[in-house]
Write a protein that binds this DNA or RNA. Structure first.
Lengths: 192, 192
DNA sequence: TACACCATGTAAGTGGTTACATGATTGA
DNA sequence: TCAATCATGTAACCACTTACATGGTGTA
């Protein structure tokens, strides 16, 4: 169900068509959720059926049709209800930690190389999220600008701070993973 | 594919039947992977077909049959190959951070309550993982004891340390999340 | 006119969730 | 004999991945 809420959350900023949403969810600077267009288009149709969003057809040129979706009152309610509900505990399932659990079965050098790749990946994520966080604090992202347009200026600071804080969380998690992996490299080196 | 590797990793310690594996993967003290029996039994049959494990039927009483699966040489190879391969970057998809991204849309008190529930959940995980980590360092888990039986005593320390380190990682991530959520509570309180 | 981009779709397969279903064994 | 536990299955549904598929528009 999270994809639907992600879509609702983006559409709350402004109406978009499937292609724009696709670019958003497949974008290189990773966000908090991702999805391919093959998942997005059917989801939008289901959500329209459910009355959470409303589509309006537009024509570019003479034939190129696109459906621009806006969030409905019902969609806003659904989003707010979901955001305000305690999150159901997800089952523990972390493929990288699972892999790390069996590092003792392979050559320490190989294990170290896997850890180094993991560190590099976390660093990349951290860099992207840091940039995004800064942009939010500077109110320098398209979506945030659109969003703030419908909110009283007195709240702008608070909203930007809260959004930026989410990326601080993703950064903190990635940092914890990178630090942990570096400690793992030290453990592996001890007996090499 | 990770479930298969998780099963291989457990069976590397000793042969087990589906029921034992089910108890392991549905267990209350959460491990690094989980799965219901409805997923485990078919997976075991597929893995046997693929030659990764080998089943031997046993009868308890007069009729109660069970299949005890052992890892094969091919299964060991597959597990080692997977463990030694750089982990494919998973798409970013975190339902809790997604939810947190829209905290500005609801009453700060509601948002705070959602964060508090998250903190409580992370604390629970930390407690379970800490206990498990200590048990590993004391060589006080069934599975580790079984595993060490086939390894030279000189390596026991190293193996226990590496396994325990994985849980240190899970703890570090949960701690980062809890700390982040507490910081979120402070942000929400500022304008309440 | 060719290429990059706009725009939307389908289909097959895998992984995971939830519920339904059945029967044997052990011990109080 | 009753309940807890042992033991294994099926089915429907949803989420996600990967690949295939089609055609329009704008511009160099």
């Amino acid at each position: 169900m999270s994809l639907q809420h992600a879509l609702l959350g983006v559409l709350e900023a402004r109406p978009m068509n499937g292609y724009e949403l696709t670019r958003f969810f497949e974008a290189a600077p990773r966000w908090v959720w991702s999805a391919p267009h093959s998942q997005i288009y059917p989801a939008l149709r289901r959500m329209e059926q459910a009355g959470l969003i409303e589509g309006r057809q537009e024509i570019r040129g003479t034939k190129l049709r696109r459906m621009v979706y806006s969030i409905t009152e019902r969609g806003l309610e659904e989003l707010r209800a979901w955001v305000g509900t305690d999150h159901a505990a997800a089952p523990v399932r972390d493929a990288f930690f699972l892999k790390a659990l069996f590092f003792d079965m392979i050559d320490p050098q190989r294990a170290a190389s896997v850890l180094r790749a993991h560190i590099a990946e976390q660093e990349e994520l951290i860099a992207e999220w840091r940039a995004h966080r800064e942009a939010l604090l500077d109110r320098d992202t398209d979506l945030l600008r659109e969003r703030l347009r419908n909110r009283p200026p007195a709240e702008h600071d608070r909203i930007a701070t809260l959004k930026a804080h989410v990326f601080a969380g993703q950064i903190a998690v990635a940092q914890a993973r990178a630090d942990w992996a570096r400690e793992g490299l030290r453990l592996l080196a001890e007996d090499a």
